[in-house]
C-alpha cells in the first residue's frame, strides 16, 4: 500500500462527487454528492497524516483538521437541509431547474 493508492481512491471519489453535483438535478442528491467530495478530501488528509510518521506517531495535525471538517460538515448538513425544507415549503419542488426565479 503506497500513499499514491490512497490518493487515487480519494481523487476518484472526489471525481464521482463532482460528476454527481454537475449531472444530478435533485438538490438533495447534489447535497449528498457534496458530502462525498468532502469525504474524499478527508481521506487524502488522513492518508498524508499516516504517511508522515515521526517518533512512531502519525502527524496528528491532519487528523485534527479532519475532525474539524467532520464537525463543520455535520453543522452544514443540518443548515442546508433546513434551507431545503424551507424551499420545499415555499416552492413545492427540490428540482434545481424549477428554481429559476432569480434568472430574471
Amino acid at each position: 500500500m503506497t500513499l499514491a493508492h490512497y490518493l487515487f481512491v480519494s481523487g476518484i471519489l472526489f471525481a464521482i462527487g463532482l460528476a454527481g453535483v454537475i449531472v444530478r438535478r435533485n438538490i438533495i442528491i447534489i447535497f449528498m454528492c457534496l458530502e462525498l467530495m468532502l469525504n474524499a478530501g478527508n481521506l487524502s488528509l488522513v492518508a498524508f497524516s499516516r504517511f508522515q510518521v515521526a517518533n512512531g506517531l502519525p502527524n496528528y495535525n491532519g487528523q485534527m483538521l479532519v475532525f474539524l471538517i467532520i464537525t463543520v460538515a455535520a453543522a452544514e448538513v443540518a443548515v442546508g437541509l433546513a434551507i431545503i425544507v424551507a424551499l420545499f415549503r415555499a416552492r413545492q419542488t427540490v428540482h434545481v431547474e424549477d428554481l429559476n426565479s432569480l434568472q430574471g
Binding site: A4, G11, A19, I22, R50, F51, V53
Partner: peptide, 29 residues
C-alpha cells in the same frame, strides 16, 4: 469535466515522489 479532472489528478499524483512510500515501511508505535 470529470475526465479532465482525473487526467490532471493522475498526472500530478504519479509525478509525486512522496507517493511511493509504503505503509509497511512506516511502522507506528
Amino acid at each position: 469535466l470529470v475526465i479532465g479532472f482525473l487526467a490532471m489528478f493522475s498526472s500530478v499524483v504519479s509525478g509525486f515522489k512522496g507517493g511511493e512510500q509504503r505503509l509497511s515501511q512506516l511502522p507506528l508505535d
